[in-house]
Design a protein around this nucleic acid. Structure first.
Lengths: 346, 346
DNA sequence: GCCCGTTATCGAAGCGCTTCGACAACTGAA
DNA sequence: TTCAGTTGTCGAAGCGCTTCGATAACGGGC
């Protein structure tokens, strides 16, 4: 591990010139720059991280707090961690991972010892305890997800309400009058921030549009599959001609299995839209229209905001809702025509 | 963010005394220590991370390289990351997360700029490219998993061979003469290091014990469930009276579903042992005997080794295999007795 | 009462970098 | 020719901490 002094000697310049050549903060003669670059390459020089943190004002590290609880949906969370890491690296930032108990103690610690430039909060719960912490530390903090009490915080998230409303509109526009929502396990409505937002918006928008909407859970972790099937069955029995799915990968598959088992086809007999999925709904047995939750969208923006916090004009606190996108894959159409008798009556 | 000078002033001592009081590297008078501790508390002092890295020889950070590829089994990987983070925190270490491309470039980078004290390599592939990198950097590196070419490396892992052999012994001892192995998707045998080790050991031990063993895949990600059922069916059709499961959570469930669908009961008709599972096999429809892969075991040891690398007597390079444990849950018994006719003939 | 060995504390020297101010060397306008 | 303005480079002052002597202050053995 060569240091800046060795590079300066090798290039025949002073260490400050080396520093300026590498940072570009002051002009350096082309010829000098070349000699320095050659020395850097030859010595395999890389500026010492500790020295940089101490002398400069940046650590080039973001902390991510992600509880990684055993009962969370691993693939989704992993996708968010990954997306954040990738976004951070694009700006030359590394990721310090704070898990479980650390999400609390760790946040204070890294804020106090100046290890990180900003903190990104993942897997946000409605009553997240990290909210209070964020308010009392000086380190800029960005939430990916929206806690209930979000006054003065910077939050980024998919506009779940708009996504849910869009799904309802899609189905109502196609002529459906009765919609079923396959939601998440009951506990998810307490531990995560978005399930209640989707449920609320589906019900509200349905009321506005004058269509009926019924909600059902997709069950807890291990009973996932069976519960999702049962719920889908109940919703269809209740007269729903369309389903909105806001649940895990396997629950989607289970719903499709139930639909198939009943001899129903998509979209002729049942229309289906997935809301807030962060997996590929075209890889299912039947490709499903999706208004997805795209981790990259939220995480890129969150990193962007974190960086802005470090600049001279920090962004306004408040919510940043990402507009939903709609990817049709042919799983939505008009509801089945009325039975022959009714059609005749009309 | 108070600094050590302010603490020293508040306590009426010099900064070196504060440093010694906090590190314990030299004796400090009880009364002085009390005053310093009070000042620390009052000012909310926490030593600056950058300054510590620069002045001291430790950064108190370990890097974790974990590709987090989209096609990996998220829950298992998350469990390992979590276990490593927890083990590291116990020793006052933080975790820097290096994902995907970073697993390569990131490793060199943090080794070169001295950001971390050691690197922990997760999700090790048989022909892992991080092996070559580990050999050429000065930063101590510990592998959790065993690459094919592991000369001179420090590797930690469950003794999969022993675990597989143990499973075979268990079943052979119970009287089974024909064993089926429900393995992983074909691709897993190339990208991960342990599936081939389990398969090889099951086959080898079976040969030694004079029982026949047949291997079947449990299919790729989305076809997981169906493929696992099919495979289990084929193995049972082939005359297997016992199954060794080395596959994901859902594949376990699928196998049990197939067994149930055939009207067979566990363990009366079929004995089942799970090998290398890092989830709770008692939460399945039928509790299954398990010779588990315990992330904590590997990760604790790996962190321990990383710490030793920083001490005066670094550990010998080589493999550290963790002895398997067996948790019986009543899914293994003698094979069903011979049909009445055979029994009479005997 | 003197010297030596403890014990508790202090001062100062870095660790490797960034950044500010200074200063030559050179340009072009007056 | 002189002077102001560039441009490229350098020296030095920290950033906040750890750690190595050095030095008081004290007590016990002679």
């Amino acid at each position: 591990m060569a240091n800046i002094t060795e590079v300066a000697e090798a290039a025949g310049v002073s260490i400050s010139t080396v520093s300026y050549a590498l940072s570009g903060k002051r002009p350096v003669a082309p010829d000098t720059r070349r000699r320095i670059e050659a020395a850097v390459l030859e010595l395999g020089y890389s500026p010492n991280a500790g020295a940089r943190m101490l002398a400069g004002s940046r650590t080039q590290i973001f902390a991510i707090t992600e509880p990684l609880r055993k009962d969370t949906h691993a693939p989704t969370h992993m996708a968010f961690v990954l997306a954040t890491a990738v976004a951070a690296r694009r700006h030359d930032y590394d990721i310090l991972l704070l898990t479980d108990e650390q999400a609390q103690a760790g946040m204070s610690r890294v804020a106090a010892n100046g290890l990180v430039d900003a903190i990104l909060v993942l897997d946000v719960a409605p009553d997240d305890s990290r909210v209070a912490l964020a308010r009392q530390i000086a380190t800029p903090t960005v939430f990916i997800g929206i806690p209930e009490d979000n006054d003065g915080l910077i939050c980024v998230d998919l506009d779940f309400e708009a996504a849910a409303a869009r799904a309802v509109d899609l189905l109502a526009d196609a002529g459906h009058a009765s919609i079923g929502l396959v939601g998440q396990a009951e506990t998810a409505y307490l531990k995560s921030n978005f399930p209640p937002r989707v449920r609320g918006a589906v019900l509200a928008r349905s009321a506005e549009r004058g269509v009926t909407a019924v909600y059902g859970t997709s069950g807890a972790k291990n009973a996932n599959r069976a519960a999702a099937r049962r719920t889908a069955g109940e919703l269809l029995d209740g007269g729903a001609t369309a389903l909105i799915l806001h649940c895990a990968d396997e629950a989607h598959a289970a719903v499709l299995a139930e639909v198939a088992a009943r001899g129903l086809s998509v979209p002729a007999d049942v229309s289906i839209v997935s809301v807030g999925a962060s997996f590929d709904t075209t890889a299912l047995a039947i490709p499903v229209d999706s208004i997805p939750l795209v981790p990259e969208a939220s995480c890129d923006l969150a990193v962007e905001l974190a960086l802005q916090c470090l600049g001279d004009e920090p962004p306004e606190p408040g919510l940043r809702l990402i507009a939903p996108t709609y990817s049709p894959h042919g799983s939505v159409s008009a509801p089945p025509g009325p039975p022959a008798s009714e059609a005749a009556a009309a």
